[in-house]
Computed example of a mutant assay.
Amino acid sequence: MSAATGHHFARPGNRFWPVLHLSGFTPRQLAPSEQEELLSYGLGITNVVARATARADELSDEEFREGGRLLTAKVERLRPRRLAVVGVTAYRVAFGDRKAVIGPQERTIGDTRVWVLPNPSGLNAHWTLRTMAEEYARLRAAATEDPSP
């Protein structure tokens, strides 16, 4: 669906947009077609791997590793204060950190602090809408409390 529409998290059952709103990142729930509005909230969105798939397990480890290298270069160039990676498995492979868990990471990219968030896919059923929103809100609170790079 994302490949067909050109919008991130476009599948109707994906919980990304509701979670982003419930966690306080956006004042209302945005539709995937409104993803450009994220910039007005100081947020950006990109992919670790640019190839669209129905499931993350359709991507190879090498695709994730190359995506991690490309994302690192993008972060070094743009220097955001925070990088949030959605999906702990994707993060572990892309950044070579097999022991990473959800939450803030020790790793930084330059001055950019890194945080791993749960994947909002419906396939990640052990995370509820509420528990995901709580985790995303932890990142929002951390960014608000410490706005330095």
Rank of each mutant, 00 (worst) to 15 (best):
L70E: 05
L70D: 05
L70H: 13
L71A: 13
L71N: 08
L71S: 11
L71H: 13
L71Q: 09
L71M: 11
T72S: 14
T72V: 13
T72L: 14
T72E: 13
T72D: 05
A73F: 06
A73R: 15
A73M: 09
A73E: 07
K74V: 00
K74W: 00
K74Y: 01
V75W: 08
V75L: 13
E76R: 14
E76C: 10
E76V: 09
R77I: 03
R79E: 03
R79L: 10
P80H: 10
P80G: 03
P80S: 04
R81F: 04
R81Q: 12
R81M: 05
R81K: 15
R82L: 15
R82Q: 14
R82D: 15
R82A: 15
R82S: 14
R82M: 15
L83D: 01
L83V: 06
L83N: 02
L83G: 01
A84V: 06
A84C: 04
A84W: 06
V85S: 06
V85R: 07
V86P: 08
V86N: 03
V86E: 09
V86W: 07
V86K: 02
G87W: 03
G87K: 00
V88C: 14
V88I: 15
V88W: 12
T89E: 14
T89K: 08
T89I: 09
T89D: 13
T89M: 07
A90L: 08
Y91W: 12
Y91F: 15
R92N: 10
R92I: 07
R92E: 13
R92M: 08
V93G: 03
V93D: 05
V93R: 08
A94I: 10
A94V: 10
A94E: 12
A94T: 09
F95G: 09
F95C: 12
F95W: 13
G96I: 08
G96F: 08
G96R: 04
G96N: 03
G96M: 08
G96K: 03
D97R: 01
D97G: 02
D97V: 02
R98T: 02
R98M: 03
R98G: 02
R98D: 04
R98I: 05
R98F: 02
R98A: 03
K99F: 06
K99Q: 05
K99I: 03
K99W: 05
A100I: 01
A100E: 04
